[in-house]
């Protein structure tokens, strides 16, 4: 963990967001320090995904302040692409570019955004493919890979940009059960390396072993935020207790 005198890498202050009449986020306050691992959980429709999608502005918040590594996200911000290139994101449905091979998926942004030469980008891409343990799949198309492999490619693609923060939006929810652990293994590996991570997931085993804090959301609000041990053993809110009883009994 880094010293507390350092500015948090992500700050959300009184963030609100509505979709029409539906208020998806209600005065969200959250600070994430460098190297911290945050797991976000809560019932579906509680605003988990919306919250992390606001951090790289896939959703625009209506009011409040979001600061990502010292840069405030505003409407007039011209440099949103620059912020995005510092924040990696992994999606539930992988969202790999289907028309590009695995390695080309990895190096596209290195070439276009980082203006890297092909050879150098390729070397970096292959490095991260080794890191997620599928270098042999480099020249295949995403459709030729299993779901677990595709998600590992998606993680590698985000890592290639050397992001300061990684956002995971239910990375294992679309996977067959037998493939979940291969993706979680990679994520645990990253966590052990000190990567800053915000992870929306229902994998409570992962949350317990990896997270520094667990954020529980319900109805667009952060209900509580605690270290895993306290969160599981001593939840404060009734809503948290109900949620835990629902997901842990099976």
């Amino acid at each position: 963990m880094t010293a507390n005198n350092q500015e948090p890498i992500i700050i959300l202050k009184d963030v609100c967001k509505s979709f029409g009449d539906f208020q998806a986020l209600h005065n969200i306050n959250l600070e994430v320090n460098k190297g911290e691992r945050i797991v976000v959980c809560g019932p579906s429709g509680s605003g988990k995904s919306t919250m992390i999608r606001c951090i790289n502005r896939l959703e625009e918040h209506d009011s409040g302040t979001i600061i990502v590594s010292g840069r405030k996200l505003t409407d007039t911000m011209k440099d949103i692409d620059a912020v995005r290139s510092e924040v990696g994101m992994v999606f539930q449905n992988f969202n790999l570019f289907p028309h590009l091979t695995v390695v080309k998926n990895l190096i596209l942004a290195l070439k276009l955004v980082r203006k890297m030469k092909k050879a150098q980008a390729h070397e970096i891409g292959m490095g991260f493919l080794k890191r997620v343990r599928i270098p042999e799949q480099a020249d295949k198309y995403p459709s030729q890979l299993s779901g677990g492999q595709q998600q590992r490619v998606a993680i590698a693609r985000a890592l290639c940009m050397n992001p300061e923060v990684m956002l995971f939006d239910e990375p294992t929810s679309a996977l067959d059960p037998e493939m979940i652990s291969e993706v979680l293994d990679v994520m645990i590996d990253l966590a052990n390396d000190g990567l800053t991570m915000i992870c929306v997931t229902h994998e409570m085993g992962f949350a317990r072993s990896v997270a520094d804090s667990i954020v529980f959301m319900d109805h667009g609000e952060i209900v509580e935020m605690k270290p895993p041990k306290e969160f599981f053993e001593n939840p404060e809110s009734d809503r948290t207790k109900l949620f835990l009883s629902q997901i842990l009994t099976h």
């Binding site: 896939l58 692409d81 995005r84 289907p98």
Partner: peptide, 15 residues
């Protein structure tokens, strides 16, 4: 989702 993946990587609109 593919647009979003491109955006999340920092690809500009024309890219």
């Amino acid at each position: 989702g593919l647009h979003e993946a491109g955006m999340a990587l920092g690809l500009k609109k024309h890219h």
